[in-house]
């Protein structure tokens, strides 16, 4: 009998704690699949954030270092500089990477730190109960923007990928979504390229994964997916944003 579908070896057989319709679990599964396919689970170290993303360490079977809100890129730097032979990745939410941890991510990218960052953008603070994030859309109602985000007071949605792409230190930057099988396949390719960029020592890589937070968007899961496709993807264009010369195209 031919196995056509199975749980990745690097993913524990454990129910996810996430809300129905949340894509955190899906994103983590893709990371586990790529870790399996590249046979790097023995030399990979994950760096955990603070936010709903925090549970990743319970699900992916690699060594993990859990740290403080927003500081993963600095922790990853400390690890990678200590043990250049390891594969180091961070997994961070939008509050974590694009608000409190902005300095750390910009400088890790600009140093060309040879690490991979996976950035779950759900345009809101999940774990703390739905406050506005720098990535929240204009007009988006949240617990701390009850009348909708306004440019005059809260400024513009934060385009981290485009900002990091400007830096000469970044090698591979992509934005993906997981709302249909075709996009999931592309997302997995991007995650794979990010790891390959690191394995081939090409420098900094980051994949932003647009993800629904049905609970805090106050939408049923399917409507949340629709809202993501109609609104989030309109503000945040998916695709490869930067592929530095030398970054492998082998997928």
């Amino acid at each position: 009998m031919k196995t056509v579908f199975e749980r990745p070896h690097s993913l524990f057989d454990l129910p996810y704690p996430y809300c129905p319709g949340c894509h955190h679990g899906l994103a983590q599964r893709l990371i586990a699949e790529v870790i399996d396919e590249l046979s790097i689970s023995d030399r990979t170290i994950g760096v955990g954030p603070v936010g709903c993303s925090v549970y990743i360490y319970e699900h992916i079977d690699v060594d993990f270092v859990m740290g403080a809100h927003g500081r993963s890129p600095a922790i990853a730097t400390g690890i990678k500089r200590s043990r250049p032979g390891t594969i180091v990745f961070s997994y961070q939410g939008d509050g974590d990477i694009a608000a409190i941890g902005t300095a750390e991510i910009i400088h890790a990218a600009n140093r060309g730190e040879n690490i991979s960052c996976f950035f779950i953008n759900n345009a809101i603070y999940g774990m703390t109960g739905g406050q506005m994030a720098p990535t929240s859309l204009l007009g988006q109602k949240t617990q701390t923007s009850p009348r909708g985000r306004k440019v005059q007071t809260e400024g513009y949605p934060f385009h981290l990928c485009e900002m990091l792409a400007v830096s000469e230190g970044s090698a591979y930057i992509a934005r993906v979504a997981l709302t249909n099988p075709r996009l999931i396949k592309k997302a997995k390719e991007a995650i794979r390229k990010a790891f390959l960029t690191q394995i081939e020592e090409q420098g900094f890589s980051l994949v932003e994964i647009l993800s629904p937070c049905p609970t805090n968007w106050r939408l049923p899961p399917l409507e949340a997916v629709k809202w993501l496709e109609e609104h989030l993807m309109a503000t945040y264009r998916i695709g490869e944003i930067k592929v530095k010369e030398g970054v492998t195209n082998a997928c």
Partner: peptide, 22 residues
């Protein structure tokens, strides 16, 4: 051995955290 000037004291202490973790 490794010397790295960090972007802030916050980053420096978390680089320390990462190095100590390994």
């Amino acid at each position: 051995k490794v010397f790295l000037q960090a972007e802030s004291e916050i980053a420096a202490i978390y680089m320390v955290y990462g190095a100590a973790a390994v």
